[in-house]
């Protein structure tokens, strides 16, 4: 198991918000069940298991079975939250997700834990940087990567109430709460964290707060930076993208995922077809080298410094 990242003041592990919210929802709705692959601890579902032992279905280390069971539970009138490390959930059970959940449109919530490179030194077998690319084309599935604990709770609550498949991508990396005024969670809509007109930074999940730091530096230099928290990757908020492209003319995407097929891929697809503007994509170029999660973020430039450099490249291309 990877060493936990040092806990910083004001930073939260979003899994706590997820587990707390699920327990609260389950207390109100008997249809809610959890399905795991021996992942009670890593999903922080110990409390759920204690309170609702009969509603915690542990199929053991068997992800294909786990996802198929989720579809069956939905057929039987339950609202299953299938929770597992996202590398195994999205990779090992991809065909079940495609055929049993997306194509069959079962009301199943998939919760990918410790996504991205959260497992650090354990390496690419345990990383989940391909999940966006794998799941984004599965139209029926709403794909959400919450940026902080608040958004995690909102996403879980929304998923429970929504009749349809959802993939919620969580991390074990502590992140700070975003400061956004009068915040409202709107699935499928980008959240305008900062308004601006020179350049748009688009981030999701664990990278939004890094992009916010980069934006602060750039704004201090007089560059009017827009920052979008694109928590929902599918369906994509094309309206916000069209506005970003036409109003700011340059985009930088930042994600804890593969640079192909994820947030950056989605933005590039849309802008190429509708509003061609320079797009710089930050993420992982492929299987990563050995190192801690913090080392990997540094090594691949997914840092405020790396985002600022990408922003300068995008601005240079714009001119």
């Amino acid at each position: 198991m990877a060493a936990p990242a040092p806990q910083q003041e004001g930073f939260h592990d979003c899994r706590d918000a997820w587990a707390r919210t699920l327990e609260d929802l389950a207390a109100r709705d008997p249809r809610i069940v959890a399905v795991v692959n021996d992942s009670v601890g890593s999903s922080k579902l110990g409390g759920f298991q204690k309170t609702f032992p009969e509603r915690l279905v542990n199929v053991g280390i068997a992800e294909q079975n786990m996802v198929g069971v989720g579809a069956g539970l939905a057929n039987g009138g339950k609202i299953p939250f299938v929770s597992a490390a996202s590398c195994f959930l999205s990779g090992r059970a991809l065909e079940q997700i495609k055929a049993d959940i997306a194509y069959a449109r079962f009301n199943v919530k998939l919760v990918g834990q410790s996504s991205g490179v959260a497992y650090g030194e354990l390496g690419p077998t345990h990383h989940s940087i391909e999940d966006f690319a794998w799941l984004r084309p599965l139209d029926a599935i709403t794909v959400i990567a919450p940026a902080d604990a608040w958004e995690t709770e909102q996403a879980v609550r929304w998923a429970a109430a929504h009749d349809g498949p959802v993939y919620i991508r969580l991390s074990r990396m502590p992140v700070p709460d975003l400061t956004v005024k009068d915040r409202v969670f709107r699935p499928g809509k980008a959240e305008m964290v900062l308004a601006g007109s020179d350049l748009t930074l688009i981030a999701c999940g664990t990278t939004v707060h890094l992009a916010a730091q980069a934006a602060a530096t750039l704004r201090a230099e007089g560059i009017s930076v827009r920052l979008l928290n694109m928590a929902t990757l599918n369906p994509l908020d094309e309206e916000a993208l069209a506005a970003a492209a036409s109003q700011t003319g340059a985009i930088v995407t930042v994600e804890e995922a593969h640079i192909r097929g994820g947030l950056g891929g989605a933005v590039a697809e849309f802008t190429a077809g509708h509003h061609p503007v320079p797009v710089e994509r930050l993420g992982f170029p492929g299987f990563v080298v050995t190192g801690s999660v913090n080392f990997l973020f540094e090594h691949y430039g997914i840092t405020p410094h790396g985002i600022i450099a990408a922003a300068r490249r995008a601005l240079a291309r714009k001119q």
């Binding site: 279905v57 294909q64 079975n65 198929g68 069956g72 939905a74 057929n75 055929a99 049993d100």
Partner: peptide, 14 residues
């Protein structure tokens, strides 16, 4: 190989 897990899930729901 998809029917068995789904049938299992239905039986667990019951």
């Amino acid at each position: 190989g998809h029917g068995m897990p789904v049938a299992l899930g239905i039986a667990i729901a019951a």
